[in-house]
């Protein structure tokens, strides 16, 4: 047990063919997957004893709050920093996320997740950053409901595990839907609630969810994605009915500028 065997799926560029490479890394106490990759950087020699190129991967905070080092470790998407070697079965198999284009080796391009946040209008529409006093009061219970969603670090685990996020669909995935709910929970954000619900009901939106519920199982932040999606289901249904029953709001005559 003095050495760890690691199998890494590598790819030199977005259009290159992928290949597997094995490494043997000396075992130390308290190791995580990041420290394995760091060891490989310091000694880029594969298990066959051949000199190779250091593995490229994404990482930053190493505390599981930035979301950067997400990869598929022994079949499950998770953060490499929080994957302790002592808890992992060997050989440790590392693959890049499969639902996003590979940049190089274990590094992928998750820009689509940020684009999805634009789709759902993921922000509070404040008037400006000048001094306007405190924000609206929020009941602690309501805040406690919203806070877990606010800890979403856009890591992509939920999208990776979701069977309905793939190249055949445009599904925006659980993360973006949950963010819509976050902003709808905030008193100011709720002023644009309808627009966000329409976006969530839009193309690639919430209806593409198939209730496999893998998202919640793999979410490193334990965000109750299943309940959030179910609640957004209800909200979009109500929104759909009222929009149809009431019709579009008529512009009141007195809204017109006078003179």
């Amino acid at each position: 047990m003095s050495e760890i065997l690691v199998k890494i799926k590598r790819q030199d560029g977005p259009k290159s063919k992928s290949y597997w490479e094995e490494f043997k890394v000396p075992l130390k106490t308290n190791m995580n997957v990041i420290s394995i990759l760091m060891e490989i950087q310091k000694n880029p020699v594969n298990a066959k004893g051949q000199q190779t190129v250091p593995v490229v991967w994404d990482c930053n905070c190493l505390e599981e709050v930035c979301g950067a080092c997400t990869m598929v470790i022994n079949g499950v998407p998770r953060q490499a920093c929080a994957a302790l070697v002592k808890d992992l079965k060997q050989p440790i198999v590392l693959r890049p996320l499969t639902k996003f284009p590979v940049v190089r080796d274990l590094m992928v391009d998750r820009n689509v997740m940020f684009e999805n946040l634009k789709k759902i209008q993921g922000w509070i529409p404040i008037d400006g950053t000048y001094d306007l006093g405190p924000g609206p009061r929020i009941a602690p219970a309501r805040r406690d409901e919203a806070y877990p969603i606010a800890t979403c670090m856009t890591c992509g685990c939920c999208m990776e595990a979701c069977p309905n996020v793939n190249s055949r669909t445009t599904y925006i995935g659980p993360a973006a839907i949950a963010q819509a709910k976050l902003f709808n929970t905030h008193p100011t954000g709720a002023m644009n609630k309808e627009e966000r619900l329409d976006a969530v009901a839009g193309d690639g939106g919430i209806v593409d969810c198939g209730n496999a519920q893998n998202c919640e199982r793999v979410c490193p932040k334990l965000i109750p994605l299943v309940s959030i999606i179910a609640e957004m289901n209800r909200e979009t249904v109500f929104r759909g009915f009222t929009r149809w029953l009431k019709g579009k709001p008529q512009k009141a005559a007195f809204d017109e500028p006078i003179g």
């Binding site: 404040i126 006093g133 924000g135 009941a139 806070y147 976050l182």
Partner: peptide, 20 residues
């Protein structure tokens, strides 16, 4: 003022029972 600004941006600060 900056804390209030962040509050207005929707940062989910921990609240007191009164919602402050």
């Amino acid at each position: 003022k900056i804390i209030y600004l962040m509050d207005r941006m929707g940062v989910m600060f921990t609240r007191t029972g009164e919602g402050l």
